[in-house]
């Protein structure tokens, strides 16, 4: 039944948390304002640009169009959850590929882009599927990048599946 605040329990980047939130709080605001994880970017705030993409139970969603109350019992991964404390290998392979292939320019779309690619990579690996460039384009259709022209981003994604 309606109440003024809602208690939610969730896991974010491997850490279990409990929070009391206002019912209309958006997931992007929970992540950026309440948990101070600023890697998830606010872009259009209408689901068009994909800058705010995060993973819920491994699937990419737009955090600007997702109610925070709906993460109860779920696992959230943000861009901060991909890197590690290991100084020799601090980045996820997706991040590494984006750096190697020059897929990053101004960087604003990058966290969201990386999260979409991460979800796609795991989906492909789970289904033993090696995607072609058209499938890669489809996988990042929800992420706008105004700098790179996408070619180098697509190269980066393609490189993740080389040798498979």
């Amino acid at each position: 039944m309606p109440t003024d605040t809602h208690k939610i329990t969730f896991t974010i980047n491997g850490r279990k948390m409990e929070r009391t939130i206002s019912p209309s709080l958006l997931l992007i605001d929970l992540i950026r304002e309440e948990l101070s994880l600023k890697g998830t970017k606010p872009g259009c705030l209408e689901g068009e640009c994909g800058a705010c993409t995060v993973l819920i139970n491994g699937d990419a969603i737009s955090s600007c169009l997702y109610l925070a109350v709906n993460v109860n019992g779920k696992e959230i991964t943000t861009i901060e959850g991909l890197s590690t404390d290991d100084r020799n290998a601090p980045f996820d392979p997706v991040q590494e590929a984006m750096i190697q292939h020059g897929g990053v320019q101004c960087g604003y779309c990058t966290p969201g882009m990386v999260m979409s690619i991460k979800a796609f990579q795991e989906h492909c690996e789970a289904n033993r599927f090696v995607p072609g460039r058209e499938e890669i384009k489809k996988a990042i259709e929800g992420n706008l990048c105004r700098c790179t022209g996408y070619t180098k981003i697509i190269d980066a994604v393609e490189s993740l599946f080389e040798g498979e």
């Binding site: 689901g47 993409t53 969603i61 737009s62 997702y66 979409s116 979800a119 259709e141 929800g142 992420n143």
Partner: peptide, 9 residues
């Protein structure tokens, strides 16, 4: 429909 992020939900 829309994009992968939207189709997911």
């Amino acid at each position: 429909l829309a994009s992968g992020q939207i189709r997911q939900v």
